[in-house]
Amino acid sequence: MTATGTAPLATAVNVDSANPAIRVSDVPVGDDMVMRVNQSGQPGRPVILMLHGSGPGVSGRSNWEALMTGLAEEYHCIAPDIIGFGDSTHPDPSPQGFVPNMTLRIDKLIRMLDELGVDSVTLVGNSMGGMFSLRLAQLIPDRLERMVLMGSGGMPGLVPLPGLVKLVTFYDDPSEQSMEDLLMLFVSDKEAFGPSIRDIAGERYAVAAREDVRRSHLGTFAPGEFWTFPEEVLAEISHRTLVVHGRDDAIVSPEGSYYLAANLPNADLYVLSNCGHWTQVEQAERFRTILSDFMEGRI
């Protein structure tokens, strides 16, 4: 497998002129691969590693920019484009199937932490990023302080909602309009977020239209085994965990978060009303408050 990344091998850190709170760098993670990493706040502060979910055109920046900016005074936030997303390396050929892709991506996330010299993190994982968080809790438990799982997958036997099916099959009929239709499913209040969604859809479609992004998406969702976390596996993950879910989520059923909260030994569940799959976007202030309270031990 040849790694043909969209970003050069480099470690230079650049301040983003569009948002000076964000620093951008390309971190080498082995096998000629690099990971595009967005950071805010200063090293030495408590580290929050923000892991985005799946979907055409998604990236660390698009998922987390507002939250990273809002937390920059208190924490050191790290939001990578996971391998196979955004401006990180897109392997060519792509691994085929969810499990091979997850295995590669988890390995490179750990390598990224090593390269950045990060020994202790709080994980905030959205959707597929929640599944990454659970797997990291198994593999590097001593480096994890706590976890926040937002609309996470991982429940065995959970029937995919139509919104998730639309996400997975996006490239059957890709267009900017189909991107807008998909992203509208991510929020509960479509009237309030409609104009913003149209802008985001244009930006995301420009990324999703790239051949390397398409290749990685199709490889991720090629036929094969899906990664889940049985009850006995969750019972061994003892980290303090906050499970968050939008009550109106049309992508991942809240049933999945009830399952996680019931089987992780030290988990609490927080269900947000008037909220879909994009907790950090649709209920940004509420979620930032919840996250800060969790980090500081107030909840």
Score class of each variant (00 low, 15 high):
Gly5Tyr: 02
Thr6Gly: 03
Thr11Lys: 13
Ile22Thr: 05
Ser25Ile: 07
Asp26Val: 04
Asp31Arg: 04
Asp32Leu: 12
Arg61Gln: 06
Thr69Pro: 07
Tyr75Pro: 02
Ile83Cys: 00
Ile83Tyr: 01
His90Ile: 06
Asp92Phe: 08
Gln96Met: 11
Met102Val: 11
Arg105Ala: 00
Lys108Thr: 05
Leu109Val: 15
Ile110Phe: 07
Arg111Ala: 15
Leu113Gln: 00
Glu115Ala: 13
Ser120Phe: 14
Arg135Trp: 12
Asp142Lys: 15
Leu144Gln: 01
Leu149Lys: 04
Met150Thr: 08
Gly153Thr: 14
Pro156Val: 10
Leu158Arg: 09
Leu158His: 12
Gly163Ser: 04
Asp173Tyr: 06
Glu176Gln: 10
Met179Pro: 00
Met184Tyr: 11
Val187Asn: 06
Asp199Asn: 14
Gly202Lys: 06
Glu203Phe: 12
Glu203Ile: 10
Glu211Ser: 08
Asp212Glu: 14
Val213Tyr: 11
Thr220Cys: 05
Ala222Thr: 00
Pro223Trp: 06
Trp227Asn: 14
Phe229His: 07
Glu232Phe: 13
Leu242Asp: 01
Val244Gln: 09
Val244Thr: 07
His245Met: 01
Arg247Glu: 14
Arg247Pro: 03
Pro254Gly: 00
Ala261Glu: 06
Leu264Arg: 02
Asn266Ala: 13
Asp268Glu: 15
Val271Phe: 10
Trp278Ala: 14
Thr279Gly: 07
Val281Ser: 03
Ala284Tyr: 06
Glu285Ile: 12
Thr289Leu: 10
Ser292Ile: 07
